[in-house]
């Protein structure tokens, strides 16, 4: 899914690595609709994954309590303290997106699974973009 992970998505962050995700949906969504985030780099699950929201590090399980929105052109920043060597890395990210206005039953909103994989160069040249980080 090229639209989720662009070629400049993997960057060195404070004390570790950051990954910027695009929203693979048709309109902006509440951040609280993101569930079950999972990241692997070179086949290794990334432990201690956080989401950066306006300078705050939020545990992915805590996103359900967030009030902010993920604008369709912005990127959700995942962060981990794990160091990553320079070069190209196999990155795979998976998450669920709860779509509250679509239903799969009397009381159940639609939950869509997403998975994206890409070989990403750490700190690749930034692409032209008007994206901001979701805050």
């Amino acid at each position: 899914m090229e639209s989720v992970l662009r070629s400049d998505a993997l960057r060195t962050g404070a004390g570790g690595v950051e990954l910027r995700l695009a929203l693979p949906w048709i309109r902006s969504m509440p951040v609280s609709c993101v569930r079950a985030l999972d990241l692997t780099i070179d086949g290794d699950p990334v432990e201690g994954l956080s989401v950066l929201l306006g300078g705050r590090r939020v545990d992915p399980s805590g996103l359900t309590g967030e009030r902010s929105w993920w604008f369709l052109q912005d990127r959700l920043v995942l962060a981990a303290d794990r160091p990553v060597r320079p070069g190209v890395h196999a990155v795979a990210v998976a998450f669920q997106l709860l779509v509250p206005y679509l239903r799969t039953g009397p009381d159940a909103p639609l939950v869509l699974p997403f998975r994206a994989e890409a070989d990403l160069l750490l700190d690749a040249a930034p692409l032209p973009s008007v994206s901001r980080d979701v805050a």
Partner: peptide
């Protein structure tokens, strides 16, 4: 135009 909006090479 959703894919272009998501690519965000220019404002929506």
């Amino acid at each position: 135009w959703t894919p272009e909006v998501i690519r965000a090479e220019r404002p929506a």
